[in-house]
């Protein structure tokens, strides 16, 4: 990619972030519930609420509050939590690594299983792998993520007691416990992703396998492994990569569910808690951070698509 196109993308990213910040700010302002009330508890007097509102700056007009927030945000300060008084940036920095880890590991697991399963079911349509994959995949896709998560907890944590049901120690404190704590959340998140990737890949690979160039490759005497992994996977994964904008959305939503379900201290939990507490600035900061990740992932997918498809590459270079 050229410098100019990187700059163009950076500019677009800033624009997107600006728009998102305005929208979330507006939405949060009209959201029912009052941060001050949430802070003080249900029995608080009107005077106390008003006092807290003033101390939080909530009595000022919306536009002033936004301008204020924007100015400090540009300086790298996303404000402080109403609830804990901790700087938003600090809590994000605390929570992000675990979320990233969860998402990355489950992506790797999902792809590692979906690629062979998808390719194999495309190679033998109607075969045993294909049938298990399409029935199981459909099941996984239609099962809500919390249902899958609860099922896993019930089987592996409650009944078999192999793995912890909730919570996770940090890797530094207890490496083994960390890994064990990660297994069920990763499986819950990866199950759905796996099903989707396998379905897409299976369909695409079937199209690719019907192409003339596959017959050419077969009659060159290449082993099946090379036909599938080199000649089929690369063209077939193109649409997988171009679907990333959609899958990323699902992935982020899924991470929120999983973190809540397993009580993992990630960004998703942070957001859920912030909503419950009407902790507007924390929520605002988390949404922005997630938006950044979203855009970055899509940028990355773009790079992958270019790498996969030389036609796009040379078209843009020309």
């Amino acid at each position: 990619m050229t410098l100019a196109s990187v700059m163009r993308r950076a500019a677009r990213l800033l624009l997107v972030l600006g728009a998102i910040s305005i929208v979330t700010f507006g939405l949060l302002a009209v959201m029912p519930g009052d941060p001050a009330l949430a802070l003080l508890g249900p029995g608080a007097t009107d005077a106390a609420v008003a006092e807290v509102r003033a101390s939080l700056g909530l009595d000022r007009p919306l536009i002033v509050r936004y301008g204020d927030w924007l100015l400090s945000a540009l300086g790298g300060d996303l404000g402080t939590s109403y609830q804990t008084g901790q700087p938003v940036v600090t809590s994000l920095a605390d929570r992000f690594p675990l979320s990233i880890e969860l998402v990355l590991v489950s992506q790797i697991v999902a792809l590692a299983v979906a690629v062979p399963v998808g390719l194999w079911s495309a190679r033998r349509p109607g075969g045993i792998v294909d049938r298990i994959c399409s029935v199981g995949g459909l099941g996984l896709l239609s099962l809500p993520m919390f249902a899958l998560g609860s099922l896993l907890v019930y089987v592996f944590a409650v009944t078999l007691k192999w793995l912890p049901a909730t919570g996770i120690p940090s890797f530094g404190d207890d490496p083994l416990g960390h890994v064990q704590g990660l297994i069920l959340p990763v499986l819950s998140l990866a199950g759905w992703q796996f099903a989707m990737y396998a379905q897409i890949l299976r369909g695409e690979a079937r199209t690719v396998l019907a192409e003339d160039y596959i017959e050419t490759a077969v009659l060159k005497g290449l082993p099946t492994r090379a036909i599938l992994l080199r000649h089929t996977l690369k063209p077939a994964s193109l649409s997988l990569a171009s679907l990333v904008p959609i899958t990323t959305g699902e992935l982020i939503g899924g991470a929120v569910v999983v973190e809540t379900l397993y009580a993992l201290p990630g960004v998703g939990r942070l957001m859920v808690d912030a909503i419950a507490a009407r902790d507007l600035l924390v929520l605002q900061g988390a949404v922005l951070a997630v938006a950044v990740v979203f855009v970055m992932l899509n940028l990355f997918a773009d790079v992958v698509v270019r790498w996969l498809d030389p036609r796009i590459r040379s078209h843009h270079a020309g």
Binding site: Y213, T216, H231, P235, R311
Partner: peptide, 25 residues
């Protein structure tokens, strides 16, 4: 057949030159 015959004793030239080569390799 793949190991001993195709590509080795028999060469195959496909019909459609546009579609017969893998576009991404």
């Amino acid at each position: 057949l793949a190991a001993e015959v195709w590509g080795r004793k028999v060469g195959f030239i496909p019909q459609n030159p546009m579609g017969a080569l893998n576009p991404v390799l």
